[in-house]
Design a protein around this nucleic acid. Structure first.
Length: 831
RNA sequence: GCCGGGGUGGCGGAAGUGGCAGACGCAAGGGACUUAAAAUCCCUCGCCCCGUGAGGGGCAUGCGGGUUCGAUUCCCGCCCCCGGCACCA
């Protein structure tokens, strides 16, 4: 760790000075009425947990480079920030230390805001959004009421994911893998009534919308696609004569229907109650009760052994007319499809395992083209692909594809089935039994039922006075003044809903609010949204690939259908930033490997920290922290500062000493480097987002200046060029290290801010190498090289190559069989 | 199991389109300055071999094949690592 007296440049003073200037001049304000083209740069807003961490620093540094670069490119840049300020940590802090969630949150916001300012991020703070303020969450409630009107918000009793540690319900997305997304506790299953948003209405569009997301990382789209889980197939009804009802199944393999030797229902299936009646009822009911409980518990951990029981009832296979036994088993999920399946053990590993265990028949009905049925010993040997049908009555010989089509038509025509599409995606449960969230604006009236809070009564504010005991149940339930309310319909005493909303509701539309943060009439104004959206570049951690990013897409489509926007997709370009690691794992308090940004700011300053975090690794890759790296970037800035100190006075000094003569080679080398750097840095930032290589190109320019400066300072032309090189260096650094860049820009005699300076232009002619280096290979191995004009003909290149002394020597005694010449690049001699 | 993404020096990483592999930085070693240290500056730096030296040669982008005058890049087959989903019918 470096000592203060070692500073090669006074970053504390420089950074403070420019942060003050930016603030005083509202330098980052994005006017709504500018003629310049708009650019909306957005990074995921933070949860105000207390302090910013390196993940934030990385995320926001990447976004800041883009925002500042676009400003220099002449765009009217909207670069806002805000706070995802509702959520459980605030409430947990209240339980632990007695600080009110509001105070805790607002104090954290104040602290983190100061930290972000010390990083020098170019935010338009006039658009700051804070979701824990009633003026924000009022609109969560407003949107919820609109959804309720349209039947998109409804109440549902169901098994829900329950986190015992957080003591609240979780959405499926938040309980992926059976673990709470926030605290990693094992999730339990509980039957509860809760509020649900009908995201499944948009399942198809969320999937087809991917076509518009060409600038998203492949794997994020894959994850979403997976999550939505679209599945094409058919519903098919099996008559059960004994109860005069039919069992409906969903299958994607209608072509295997002749091999459906039994049906399996989930023990939670609604027909179970009827099916179990009869002589074995007691035993069956006991099995069902046991299995439901066990399955609920086991599903958290993973795979359970397949267990089942025969109901003794038979259904009729509608294609064969033959009876098939109806079983109940733990491996069929009530949540997916219809909760019942037709089991085809010959072509499905799970059904096969089950059939083997209980001695059920296996009938092979599909074989590979040219193949024939053969006994299979294990699930791994099964033929599970599409093929050609056998043992399938009138469909024998058809391909799976043809058979599926004909069978679907036949089932449809005879009224016992139809084509269908199902999704894995399920509706979004948003009820949370917590205090520090948006109150769901509903009232339970004994007479009128569930009544929405009238729009004019919004917001339903979170009551300030509450008890935070950590006991089960929401603190809101115990606040009489909150709970007791007159029914808006009949005026009689009623109870207010005490569930609050999942905070992912807040973050599903905050990017709209930034466009008109002060409007009181609607969540946002149509004009502002139309002007600024979509977000041109959205940057954030890939951990939100399915949660936040799918909810936001859903809300955008919903808001569109409410007429508030015309937008289909909010984020056409998403840059998934990689994780910040140390010692091979993610930084986290529990692992004790956290590097505090404040400490780095203290020792190296914001510019060095920003530069390092951008230089060490490309944005989408993981970034491994190491202290020596930031040391190196700090040293680099020190060298730039030295160059600036040396070059600055050359501009104003008298004529260059005549005793030196200009060195034309050095002059054109540096001039070329200047133009190449402008091109490379601009392209790396704008086209490829390769910020690490942009930084290395800037370093190369600095190295070139250092190397040539002592020769060039001897002539007037050389001095002018050195000044130009220094200014290029400053401009190129400006998006990365804005403070030191402003300081040097001012020092070079420039009046306006460097962030207002236009990004420099390069001259392609000057950026071009004047001579091409031609590599000469013999049998693909480099043997020599020579320089020549770019437009040297292939014939001349060949002659020149064969004439090189070294090549002539090496070719002695061999026969040249072939010579491959690529203009301006290579001559490969094959012998 | 399925779906995605990766394997390049001691390390982080470069190499838009098949054409000099290892840019830039870190670490390391040597040197200058210094009473000394820090800071700073200069030089060396993929591995192996031959040569006293200048220099020369071979091997190298996870492994094995293929296409090509030429492959880190394209194709086929394996191995390993990371991420996501996981009884989804």
């Amino acid at each position: 760790m470096r000592q203060d007296e070692d500073r090669t440049y006074d970053f504390p003073a420089i950074e403070a000075r420019w942060q003050k200037t930016w603030e005083e001049t509202n330098a980052f304000r994005a006017p709504d009425d500018s003629d310049r083209p708009k650019y909306y740069a957005l990074e995921m807003y933070p949860y105000p947990s207390g302090r910013i961490h390196m993940g934030h620093v990385r995320n926001y540094s990447i976004g800041d480079v883009i925002a500042r670069f676009k400003m220099m490119r002449g765009f009217n840049v909207l670069h806002p920030i805000g706070w995802d300020a509702l959520g459980m940590p605030a409430e947990n802090a209240a339980i632990k230390s007695g600080i009110h969630p509001q105070k805790w949150t607002m104090d954290n916001v104040a602290h983190m805001k100061a930290q972000l300012k010390r990083m020098g991020f170019a935010y338009d703070w006039s658009r700051e959004v804070n979701t824990c303020l009633p003026e924000y969450y009022k609109w969560n409630q407003w949107i919820f009421l609109k959804m309720h009107e349209r039947g998109l918000a409804y109440r549902k009793e169901s098994w829900v994911n329950w986190c015992p540690a957080c003591r609240t319900v979780l959405a499926n997305e938040q309980a992926a893998g059976g673990a709470c997304w926030r605290c990693s506790s094992g999730v339990e299953q509980k039957k509860m009534e809760q509020w649900v948003l009908k995201i499944t209405d948009y399942a198809e569009e969320l999937l087809s919308g991917h076509a518009q997301l060409g600038k998203w990382p492949e794997h994020v789209l894959a994850m979403q696609k997976n999550w939505i889980g679209r599945s094409e197939g058919a519903y098919l009804n099996f008559e059960v004569p004994s109860i005069k009802k039919s069992i409906r199944v969903f299958t994607t393999r209608l072509d295997t229907i002749f091999g459906a030797t039994f049906l399996v229902l989930s023990p939670e299936h609604p027909l179970v109650d009827e099916l179990v009646r009869g002589p074995r009822e007691a035993r069956l009911r006991q099995w069902v009760a046991k299995t439901v409980a066990a399955a609920r518990a086991k599903r958290e951990i993973g795979e359970a052994d397949k267990e089942g029981i025969d109901t003794g009832v038979t259904a009729v296979n509608p294609f064969t007319g033959k009876p098939v036994p109806v079983w109940l088993a733990n491996y069929v999920l009530m949540e997916y499809g219809t909760g019942a399946i037709m089991a085809v053990p010959a072509h499905d590993g799970r059904d096969f395992d089950f059939a083997k265990k209980y001695g059920l028949p296996v009938v092979e009905v599909v074989v590979p083209e040219g193949g024939s049925p053969s006994p299979r010993e294990s699930a791994a040997e099964l033929f599970e692909d599409a093929g050609v049908l056998v043992n399938s009555g009138p469909y024998i010989g058809l391909t799976s594809y043809e058979a599926t089509k004909k069978m679907a038509a036949w089932a449809n025509g005879n009224g016992f089935g139809e084509p269908a599409v199902t999704y894995r995606l399920r509706d979004w449960g948003i009820s949370r039994q917590r205090y520090w969230g948006t109150p769901i604006p509903m009232i339970h009236c004994p007479a009128c039922g569930i009544v929405p809070v009238p729009y004019e009564d919004l917001p339903v504010e979170i009551p300030y006075k509450a008890e935070f005991t950590g006991e089960s149940g929401s603190p809101l339930e115990k606040i009489a003044s909150f709970v007791n309310v007159a029914c808006p319909k009949c005026g009689r005493p009623a109870r207010r809903e005490t569930d609050t909303m999942d905070t992912f509701v807040d973050s599903s539309w905050y990017f709209f609010r930034y466009t008109s943060p002060d409007t009181g009439a609607l969540p946002f104004t149509r004009a502002a949204a139309d002007k600024w959206l979509p977000v041109d570049l959205y940057i954030g951690g890939v951990e939100h690939a399915i949660l936040h990013l799918i909810y936001s897409r859903f809300f955008t489509k919903l808001l569109r259908d409410l007429g508030l926007t015309t937008l289909d997709e909010p984020f056409p370009h998403y840059l998934a930033q990689g994780m910040v690691l140390k010692d091979g794992t993610a930084m986290s308090k529990s692992k004790g490997n956290v590097v505090d940004p404040d400490e780095m700011l203290e020792h190296y300053g914001a510019d060095a920290l920003r530069l390092f975090i951008l230089f060490a690794s490309p944005p989408e890759k993981e970034f491994a922290w190491n202290e020596d790296g930031i040391e190196g970037c700090y040293r680099f800035l020190g060298r730039v500062w030295q160059l600036y100190q040396e070059i600055k006075p050359l501009r104003t000094e008298a004529e260059a000493p005549a005793s030196f003569s200009p060195d034309p080679a050095a002059f054109s080398r540096l001039r070329k480097k200047i133009h190449q750097t402008i091109r490379k840095v601009g392209e790396d930032i704008e086209m490829r987002f390769h910020l690490n290589t942009a930084v290395s190109a800037i370093m190369e320019l600095a190295n070139a200046v250092r190397k040539e400066k002592d020769i060039l300072r001897g002539s007037g032309d050389g001095r002018v060029l050195l000044g130009e090189a220094m200014e290029t260096l400053i401009l190129a650094l400006a998006p990365f290290t804005p403070h030191i860049s402003e300081e040097m820009w001012r020092g070079m005699g420039r009046e306006s801010l460097v962030l207002r300076a236009p990004w420099p232009k390069f001259d392609p002619e000057l950026a071009r190498e004047e001579l091409a280096v031609v590599v000469v290979e013999i049998n693909g191995k480099v043997r020599d090289k020579f320089e020549t004009a770019h437009d040297t003909s292939e014939e001349a290149m060949k002659t020149a190559a064969l004439d090189l002394p070294r090549i002539r020597q090496l070719l002695e005694g061999t026969t040249v069989r072939k010579v491959v010449v690529i203009k301006g690049k290579i001559v490969n001699i094959v012998v």
